[in-house]
Write a protein that binds this DNA or RNA. Structure first.
Lengths: 215, 215, 215, 215
DNA sequence: CATGAATGAGTATTCATTCAT
DNA sequence: TATGAATGAATACTCATTCAT
C-alpha cells in the first residue's frame, strides 16, 4: 500500500490534460475556465487541484508537451540520413488540427510574452529547438548541403520563422497552400545555399521611399 | 449611440481606441478590462457604451483599423514608383512596439479564429491585401522587376507568409531580428526574380523519407 | 454632475460597515463571508468592491473605527476635570454588546498578530492610546493624584491590560462582575499611588517553588 | 474510531494534536487546514478521521488539554506549601511561545464564544479553575497569607482578571512585559492583603462625571 | 453627454470530509 | 490501519454591462 499506482495518477493527469486541450481549442486559453475543463474531464472542480497546482500549471504542461514533441521530431530528423529540406518539409505544412489549433498556438505565444513563468518555458524550448537546427545546419555544411559562410544562428531563426509562417498561411489561404508551400520549401533551399548578402537588399530601382508603417 | 457633434464624437472614439490599444498592449485582449480602458481614457464606465456597443466592438474596431492601415500603405506603395521590395520593406522590419505589439497581433489572430464576427473582418481584409499584392506584382512584371512566369496568386500568398515570418522573428527573437529580417528581405528578392521550380525542391540526397509530423 | 454625492457614497460605506459588523459579530472575522455581508447589506456581491478593496479592507476599517472611538473618548476624558480613576472607570466595565462583541475583539487581536497590515493599524492606534494615557498620568502626577516615581509607560501598559481584562472577566463571570469590577478599580487606584517595588514581590512565605507552567 | 492497540492509538492522537497545535500557532484556528495538519503530522487526510471526528474535535481537544493543564497546575500549587503569589506567578509571566501563542488563545476564546460545544468546555473548566482558586484562597486565609475579610469568590474572579491582563500585555506589548508583569504581581499581592473598600474608589477630585463609553 | 452606482453570473481556488481500496 | 482519490459547496474577487440621474 505504499504509493498506490503512480501510473494511474499519471494516466489521470494525461486525461485531464487532454480535456484541457479540447477546451482550450474550443474557447482559447482564457476563454476556457477550470470549470469547463473539469466538466470535460468529468471530475469535480476541486479534484483538478489534486493533479495540477493551478490553471497556469495546466497550460504550462500543455505548452511544454507540445514543444517537447516538436523538439523530438527535429532531433529524430537530424539523426536520419535525409536532407535538411526533406527533414524540415513536414514542418512547412498546415498545422494539423486546423484553425483552432493555430489559434491556440497564437494564444500560447501571446501568453508566453505576458506570463514570465511561461515565457521561460517557451524560451528555453525555443532555444533548444534552435540549437538542434544549428546542429543540423552544421552537419549540412560538412556534407556540402549548406553554404559554408552562413551565420547558422540567424539561419536557424529564419527557418523557425518560416516554419511558423507556413502554417499560418496554409490556414489563411487553404486554396493556395498546395502551391505556396512548395515555394516556401524552395525559398528554404535558397536560404541554405546562398551566402548572406552584405546588408544590401539589391539595388533599389527608384529613389522614392515609402512612408514608414506606424502600426 | 446617436451623436450630437459627429466630429467630436469621432474624435472621442479615436481617443478611446487609443486608450484601449495601450491597455491591450499591456495586458492582452482578455487581460485588459473595460474598467482599465475607461480609466486610461478618463471616461466613466457607463460612458464607454455611448461610443461602442461592447468590448468586442472595440477590439473589432482596432483590428479593422490596423488592417486598413496596412492595406492603405500597400496601395500607396503600389502607386508610388518604389520597387516592390522597397514597398514591402516596412512590413519586413522590426515593428514599433516590439514583442508586446506582436503578442497583441497574435491575440487578435487567435480571437479572429474564434469569434466569427472578427473572423469575417480579418478574412475580408486579408483578401483585399492579397489582391493589392497581386496588382502590385502584376505592375512589377510589366516593369520587368518581377519574373514574368510567376503565378501571382501564389507569390502573393508567399509574400504574406514572409510578412508573417517577420512578425514571428520580431516576437520570438527580437535580439536577432536585426540580422534575420534582412535575410527575409533577401528571400523576398529571390522569390520575385526566380521562376517557380517544377515541384522539386532540389535533388534529395537520400531516399529515406521522414515520418510525418503530427504536432 | 461633478461628483454626484460623495456624501451618499460615504453613507453607503457606513451602511456596509454596519452590515459587516453584524455579520462579524455573529460568525467571526473568518466565519462571515463577503456573500454574507452583501446579503446583510442588501447589495450584490460585486458591488461590495465599489466601496472596499477587499474583505480585509473592511476589517481594517472596522478596527480603525473602533480604536479611533476609544482614543477619542480617552482624550475627551483627559480634557475633562475628572480624576483618572473616574475617567477610566467606564473602560473597566463589561463590553457593551456582550460575549459576541468580546469574541470579535479576540478575533481582531488574533488577526492583527497574523496579518501585518492589520498589525500596523492596531499597533499604531495602541501606541496612540498609550501616549494619551501617559499624558493623562503625567498630568495626574502634576496634580499629585499619581505617584511621582512611577514609570508612566509601564503603568499605561498595565492600565490598558486591566481595561481589557475587566471586560473579559465581566463576560466570563457576569454574576461576580458587579463586585469584582470595583475591586479592579481599587487596584487601579493602588497602582497609581504606590511606587513600584524593586523587583521583589514581597517576602515569600515558603521556600518551595512551583514547577513552571508549560503554556 | 475503534482502536486495536489503545496505547499506540492514544500516542498517535497526541502526535496529531501536537502537529495541529503547531499549525494553529502559525496560521490560526481557521487559517490552518486539515491538510496542513495532516502534512505536519505526516498522515494521510483520510487517516485523520480515524483519530478525530472533525477539525472542531481537534480544536476542542486542544482547548480541553490546555485548560486541564492550567487547572492541574493550580491544584498542584495548592497542595504544595508555596505561597499563593508564588503559585500564581507562572500565570503572570511571559508565556512561552510569545505573541503567537497568545493570538491562538484569543482565537480559542473567540471560537468558544461562538461554538456552543466549545463554550461548554471552556465554561466548565473556568468554573473549576475558579473553585480551585477559592479553595486556595481559603487555605491562604487559614495560614494568614490572605486577608480574612475578603469575599473569596470575588477575589478569585479578580485574580482571573489579572491572569488575563498578563496575557494581554504579553501579546500587545511583549517588549514591556518584563516590566509590566511584575507590576501585575504586585497588584496581586495588594489584592490578597487588603480588605475590600466599601464601594468607594478613593475620594474623587471633581464631581463631573464622564459620559459612559459606548464602544 | 456623462456619471458612477448597481448587477449577477462567472473566475480560480480551497477545504472539510467521505470512500473505495 | 492507512492511503489518496474524489467530492461539492464555499471562498474572495472580477467584469462586461445596464440604468437612474
Amino acid at each position: 500500500m505504499r504509493k498506490l499506482d503512480p501510473v494511474k495518477h499519471e494516466k489521470k493527469r494525461q486525461e485531464i490534460l487532454g480535456a484541457a486541450m479540447r477546451c482550450f481549442l474550443c474557447s482559447g486559453l482564457k476563454g476556457a475556465s477550470t470549470a469547463d475543463i473539469c466538466a470535460e474531464a468529468k471530475i469535480s472542480p476541486g479534484h483538478l487541484y489534486h493533479y495540477f497546482d493551478s490553471k497556469d500549471a495546466i497550460v504550462a504542461s500543455l505548452i511544454e508537451g507540445r514543444l517537447e514533441k516538436v523538439a523530438e521530431q527535429l532531433k529524430a530528423g537530424i539523426q536520419s540520413e535525409s536532407s535538411i529540406v526533406e527533414t524540415l518539409a513536414p514542418e512547412l505544412e498546415a498545422q494539423p488540427g486546423g484553425a483552432a489549433a493555430m489559434a491556440l498556438i497564437f494564444d500560447m505565444m501571446a501568453e508566453s510574452k505576458r506570463n514570465p513563468e511561461m515565457g521561460k518555458i517557451v524560451d528555453s524550448h525555443n532555444r533548444s529547438i534552435r540549437e538542434s537546427l544549428v546542429e543540423m545546419l552544421r552537419y549540412g555544411q560538412s556534407r556540402g548541403e549548406v553554404e559554408g559562410k552562413l551565420d547558422l544562428e540567424v539561419t536557424a531563426t529564419t527557418i523557425m520563422a518560416l516554419m511558423h509562417a507556413a502554417k499560418v498561411v496554409a490556414m489563411q489561404n487553404p486554396k493556395e497552400a498546395d502551391k505556396a508551400l512548395p515555394v516556401l520549401r524552395q525559398l528554404l533551399g535558397h536560404l541554405l545555399t546562398t551566402p548572406a548578402e552584405s546588408a544590401k537588399a539589391g539595388p533599389p530601382r527608384t529613389k522614392k521611399t515609402v512612408a514608414r508603417v506606424r502600426a
